[in-house]
Design a binder for these strands. Structure first.
Length: 284
DNA sequence: ATTAATGTTCAGAA
DNA sequence: TTTCTGAACATTAA
């Protein structure tokens, strides 16, 4: 569920780490629940210990830690991963602990540490050289960031596709950062039916989709992302987001559309995932 | 008590 | 080439 707004919120939340040195690396993996990391624990520990965090970044739905060695430490939360500064939801699913020096910026926290917690354990932690990073997340593998997308970018990359627009928006090589939740909200705001084939969309439709993408993602970041009913997603300080209170269609099957207040939100399945839309506002 | 559903990514098939 | 399917995994709701 961490999509672009949630991952961006995590990234901003760990900014107090910038300038700090990694004193100790603790890989918390039980044999039953091995953490998915590369390189192997010993090599990872060796390459991380003593390095200084010089910046943070985001590659689609991944948090990137920039190190003074030029290495990139990637956190890919997938479903239930969290990057935290304090207070993990439970000790049980803690996967990685980076002990940093004493903190000077964050009130109430003495020893700063960076934690990776992951309930389901589908997420990945990877340390990469600049060239490995470039191959893994270059333009071949990851499209332009959704926050800065335009009608031209979308039409150029998806305009000829026969896929349904909802499915295409989830393609990270086309545009990076949109997931199932925000795809639904974006198409609702743009008033496009999720099953519309991309190649049937005209310029005005692409413009509405691009504008809705920028607006919705930016708003969701302002509200620090969406914490759904399972409560998994939290920011770096283990606090819930609040954008779920602004959802128009996602997970609202059978409820009245918040835009037209007339039709009930419908749920269909596309590419084996749930799609929510308003049959009144999003005509085919 | 079993089964379905949840969402992201990738390998491999159609 | 493009699009689709299933697996990885944990937990909960039905």
């Amino acid at each position: 569920m961490p999509e672009l707004p949630e991952v961006e919120t995590m990234r901003r939340g760990i900014d107090p780490c910038i300038g700090m040195r990694i004193k100790e690396v603790e890989i918390v993996a039980s044999p039953r629940r091995p953490i998915k990391i590369s390189p192997k624990p010993a090599a990872l520990r060796k390459r991380l210990r003593g390095t200084t965090i010089v910046g943070t970044d985001r590659a689609g739905k991944r948090v990137v830690l920039l190190l003074d060695t030029q290495d990139h430490l990637i956190f890919e939360p997938r479903m239930t991963g969290l990057v935290l500064l304090t207070d993990p939801p439970s000790q049980e699913h803690l996967r990685l602990r980076l002990q940093l020096g004493r903190n000077t910026q964050l009130r109430g926290v003495r020893e700063l540490e960076l934690l990776y917690w992951d309930r389901r354990g589908l997420g990945l932690v990877r340390l990469m050289s600049p060239s490995e990073f470039a191959t893994a997340f270059g333009t071949e593998r990851l499209g332009p960031d959704a926050l800065g997308t335009t009608a031209d970018i979308l039409a150029e990359r998806l305009g000829d596709s026969r896929r349904a627009i909802k499915v295409a928006l989830l393609d990270q090589r086309a545009v990076a950062g949109i997931g199932n939740l925000y795809a639904a909200e974006i198409l609702h705001r743009a008033q496009i039916h999720p099953a519309t084939p991309c190649r049937r969309l005209r310029t005005d439709a692409w413009q509405r989709i691009a504008a809705a993408t920028r607006r919705i993602l930016a708003a969701a970041i302002r509200y620090e992302g969406s914490t759904l009913s399972d409560g998994t997603y939290r920011n770096a300080l283990n606090q819930s987001g609040t954008y779920q209170n602004h959802h128009q269609v996602y997970d609202r099957e059978g409820e009245k559309c918040r835009r037209c207040r007339k039709h009930e939100v419908r749920r269909i399945v596309q590419a084996q995932r749930a799609t929510f839309f308003c049959p009144g506002c999003q005509i085919r």
